[in-house]
Simulated scan of single mutants.
Amino acid sequence: MHSHFPPLNAVKTFEVAARKLSFSKAADELCVTQGAVSKQIQTLEKHLEVSLFKRTATGLELTEEGRQYLPAIAEAMHLIQGATSLLQQQRHQRTLNISLSPSFSNLWLIPRLAMLQSAHPDIHLAIASSDETVRFTEGTIDAAIRCLPLSPNYENSTLLVAEQLLPIIHPSRLAAQPIEQPEDLLHHPLLLHITRPQIWTAFLNNVLGNEHRGQAPHYSTGFEHFYMSYEAIRQGQGIGLLPHFMVERELAEGELVNPLGIRYTSGYGFYLQIPAFNAQSSRIYQFKQWLEEQLRAA
């Protein structure tokens, strides 16, 4: 068998013919003649030194070698098509590759994408979600947003908003068991945040002081992300602590309730991180300005 790369046109023709199990249908998809398809298949079979198709009484079938070859070829063609489409899109659009904390993305940015596109129609985002420490390499991530302990010492980072946590409950649960004073919070299940398990203790110490020492909180299901707690709250499963700016619409419209209007400054904040190689990017500057404007309004 030849060791060098097979002819790409023949490989593409094989993928289509194998998917259709018909040279004539493959010819229609590829906009060539049936004879051209047959010739490309012969070229590939000669290169591989195996037969890929066999004709039977019921039609065209793959040989055992053809069945082995097809999955990897189909995946490779899919990757090539995806990479080509992405490159073409980025050529014609001002795409920013942004890595966001999942809750910031799900609860805040995605509902406001139409506003961003209206304000900056020439900027398009490619959004990935992660809470991991960002390691910037040129050409991969253009900027990131992470929730971090408040500090003036983060390199290439701008504080977008200091986090204030609100005890949020669904109106139906509140109606069934009213909260008239801070101690009444303990009558409801408290939804844990498993990546920051200390926040309920800090919140209760701040709001109740020593007054809750005689009554142990009833902790319920733990969730990794705020957006997961958000959904559990909407299902009436308990009280969760959520960043103020992520639930402003729901509070304004009465879909969720902060029963006592309590706000707890957590000591965390959401930071925009921009690598040094993108510091002068006009796209990043416009995106940063828009973020700051929107979060100031919150």
Rank of each mutant, 00 (worst) to 15 (best):
R55I: 10
Q34H: 13
Y227D: 14
K54A: 06
F270M: 09
L148C: 03
G238K: 02
Q215C: 07
E248K: 09
R249G: 03
P102L: 04
A279L: 08
E49P: 00
Q88H: 12
Q237N: 08
M228F: 09
I141V: 15
S85T: 13
T265C: 13
L113P: 06
T133F: 14
F287K: 06
T137R: 14
E61M: 09
L70I: 09
V134R: 10
F270E: 04
L52H: 03
A162Y: 00
W290V: 03
E250V: 01
F104I: 02
L21W: 11
L87I: 03
A144T: 00
F136T: 03
F223G: 07
S129P: 12
A298V: 08
R249D: 07
K39S: 08
Q88R: 11
F23S: 07
S281G: 11
L8R: 00
C31E: 10
S281P: 03
G240C: 01
Q181C: 12
I169A: 01
Q34A: 14
V247W: 01
S282V: 04
E250D: 15
A279N: 07
L107M: 09
K20A: 12
V11T: 06
Y154Q: 05
A74N: 07
K39T: 00
H187C: 06
P7F: 02
E224G: 12
E292Q: 15
P6W: 07
P259R: 07
A119S: 15
V11C: 15
T221N: 14
L190A: 06
R91L: 09
E250R: 04
H244K: 15
A119D: 11
E183I: 10
Y230I: 01
E64P: 04
L272Q: 00
Q68Y: 12
G236H: 11
R173S: 15
D122Y: 02
A27Y: 03
I194K: 10
T158G: 01
G35K: 14
Q81C: 05
P167H: 04
A114H: 14
I110L: 12
N9K: 10
F287H: 03
E75F: 07
L48E: 01
Q181W: 01
L30V: 07
E138R: 15
S157F: 00
Y268S: 01
L166A: 12
F14W: 06
I123R: 01
F203C: 00
A36T: 14
I98W: 03
G238D: 04
K39M: 05
M77N: 08
R67C: 09
N156R: 12
R234V: 09
I179G: 01
L21N: 04
V247K: 02
V11W: 10
E138Q: 12
T58A: 08
Q34W: 02
F226T: 04
E231M: 12
W200A: 02
I284R: 05
T201E: 10
G209N: 11
L79Q: 13
Y154E: 10
T140N: 13
Y219V: 07
N156Y: 06
I169Q: 02
A74R: 04
T95Q: 15
H187R: 15
A298G: 08
F223I: 10
L166D: 03
G254H: 06
P121L: 13
I73E: 03
A72M: 12
A176P: 08
L185R: 02
H187K: 10
